[in-house]
Structures are given as structure tokens and as C-alpha cells.
Amino acid sequence: MSQSYDRGLVEDFGRWREFSAGMWAWLFHKFTGWVLIGYLFTHIAVLSSALNGAATYNSTLHGLEGLLVVRILEVGLLAVAVFHILNGVRLLFVDLGVGIGLETQEKSFYASLILTGLIVVASVPVFLEGGL
């Protein structure tokens, strides 16, 4: 059976001290979603260099990847994507009625955060050095 709750205006960031784990999960999912859709537009814009031929494509991509700041930002992108995926899987299970107890939801959120951290830390050398 469907249930809904009046949570007030949840994007009232002035209430951040009152936020529980669930509110942080909601906020992080929203924030990472904004970053990912913003990145998708940028990503397609960069890859559009392919329309001008191989030389333009290669010089554009290699020029960007030659910048350390870009590689560091890519680690941030990985963090954002991994959290959005893991927390998204959690939300899909909740939507299906699996793991909806408050304590289970909090634990699965913390698990998403920890797993994201581990994957990102383990991936830093690959991103900064360029390959496995």
C-alpha cells in the first residue's frame, strides 16, 4: 500500500542541523544527480569534436587529459557516479518494499557511503596515472 509523508519543504537547507541520515541520503542523491546531468551536457559537447574529424577529437581529448586538474575532477566524477549508483540501487530496493525499516535504510545508506569511499580511494592511482 502506498504511503506518503508531509516532510515540509525538504530543500530548506537552513534546517540542515535537523537532518537525519535519510535526509542526507536524499540531499546527496539530489546533488549527485545535478552534477551528473550537468556533466552529461559537457561530455557530449567535448565528444562533439568527433564531428570535426579524428585530429580534432584526439587533440581535444588529449589536451584535456593532459591537465592534472581534469584528472582530479574525474576522480570527483567517479565519486559522484558511484554514490548515485549505489544509493540508487538502495532506493530501487526500497521502492520494491525491500529493506524499508528505518534502521535498515540508515545502515544501507552508510554502506553506500563507505563503499563509495573505498572504490574511489582504490581508483585514485588509475585516474591519476592513467590505467590499470
Partner: peptide
């Protein structure tokens, strides 16, 4: 495109 084919090694080909 980040682990198997790292981004710095991506080419048009």
C-alpha cells in the same frame, strides 16, 4: 573508458 581503456589513451580510432 576509465579502467580498461584509460581516458588519456582514448583515440578516435
Amino acid at each position: 573508458v576509465h579502467f580498461l581503456h584509460p581516458a588519456p589513451q582514448i583515440t578516435f580510432g
